[in-house]
Deep mutational scan, measured.
Amino acid sequence: DIEITTNGEEDAKRVIKELQKRNLEYHIEVHGNQWVIKVR
């Protein structure tokens, strides 16, 4: 598993777009303004 910590929603959406392009499965956890994306 890979864990990507982003700085808020805009940053997270940019990362998610890339993950979707590669058809990767991911899970999002929001901790305040930090979005942690866990990639399987």
Rank of each mutant, 00 (worst) to 15 (best):
Q34F: 11
D11Q: 14
H31Q: 11
Q20C: 10
Y26R: 00
W35D: 03
I4Y: 09
E10Q: 10
I2V: 10
L24M: 09
K13T: 09
Y26P: 02
N7G: 06
Q20N: 10
G32T: 02
Q34N: 13
K38Q: 09
N23D: 07
E9I: 13
K38V: 15
N7Q: 11
Y26A: 03
W35S: 06
G32K: 05
G32M: 03
Q34P: 00
N33L: 05
K17L: 13
T6D: 01
H31Y: 07
N23C: 07
I37L: 01
V36H: 05
R40W: 07
E18T: 05
V15I: 15
I2R: 08
L19T: 01
I37A: 01
T6F: 11
I4P: 02
A12W: 04
K21R: 14
A12Q: 02
I16H: 01
V15K: 03
A12R: 03
E18F: 07
Y26L: 05
V36D: 01
N23Q: 10
V30M: 08
W35V: 15
V36G: 01
K21S: 12
Y26M: 04
W35A: 06
E3T: 15
I4M: 04
K13Q: 12
D11K: 06
K17W: 04
V39N: 00
V15N: 01
I28K: 00
H27E: 14
G32A: 03
K17S: 11
D1P: 10
E25R: 09
I16K: 01
V36S: 01
K13A: 12
Q34M: 09
I4L: 06
T5D: 03
N33T: 06
H31V: 13
E25Y: 09
T6H: 02
I37H: 00
R22Q: 11
H31T: 10
E3D: 07
E9A: 12
T6I: 15
I16Y: 01
I4A: 01
N23M: 09
L24P: 01
V39S: 02
V36I: 14
E10I: 08
Q20K: 11
V36R: 04
Q20E: 14
V15F: 06
L24R: 05
T5A: 07
A12M: 13
L24F: 06
R40T: 14
R40K: 14
D11S: 11
V30S: 04
E9D: 05
T6L: 14
I4G: 01
V39Q: 00
E3M: 14
H31G: 03
E10S: 08
D1V: 14
K38M: 10
R14H: 07
Q34I: 12
Q20L: 11
K13G: 07
E29P: 00
K17R: 13
E9G: 06
K21E: 13
E3V: 15
R14I: 11
K38P: 00
N33H: 06
N7D: 12
N33M: 04
I2L: 13
R22Y: 09
N23Y: 05
E18Y: 09
Q20A: 09
T6G: 13
V15E: 02
I2F: 15
L19W: 00
T5P: 05
I16F: 02
D1I: 14
Q34V: 09
H27T: 15
K13M: 15
V15Q: 02
N33C: 07
K13L: 14
R14A: 11
Y26G: 03
E25V: 10
V30N: 04
T5K: 11
A12I: 05
T5S: 08
E18G: 06
N7M: 13
I4E: 01
V36E: 04
D1R: 10
L19E: 00
E9S: 08
V39W: 02
E29C: 15
G32I: 03
E29S: 09
E3R: 12
L19R: 00
E10K: 11
R14E: 09
V15S: 01
Q20D: 10
I2K: 05
K13F: 12
T5Q: 09
I4H: 02
T6Q: 02
E3W: 15
H31A: 09
G8Q: 08
D1T: 13
R22K: 10
T6E: 02
K17I: 12
R22N: 09
I2Q: 06
I4K: 01
K17E: 13
E10M: 09
E29N: 04
L24T: 03
V30F: 08
E29R: 04
G8S: 15
H27D: 14
E10G: 07
E25I: 12
H27W: 14
E25L: 09
T6S: 04
R14M: 10
R22P: 01
R40Q: 13
K21V: 07
I28H: 00
V30H: 06
V30K: 12
K21A: 12
R14T: 07
H31C: 13
N33P: 14
D1E: 13
Y26S: 01
E29W: 03
E25D: 11
N23F: 06
V30D: 01
N23A: 07
N23K: 11
L24W: 06
H31M: 11
W35E: 04
N7E: 12
D11V: 08
V39R: 00
V39A: 02
E3Y: 15
I37P: 02
G32N: 10
E29K: 04
V30R: 09
V39L: 06
D11I: 08
E18A: 10
H27K: 12
K13C: 14
K38C: 11
E9F: 13
Y26E: 00
N33E: 10
K21F: 07
L19G: 00
E10D: 10
E9R: 10
E25F: 08
V30L: 05
E18N: 06
G8N: 15
D1M: 14
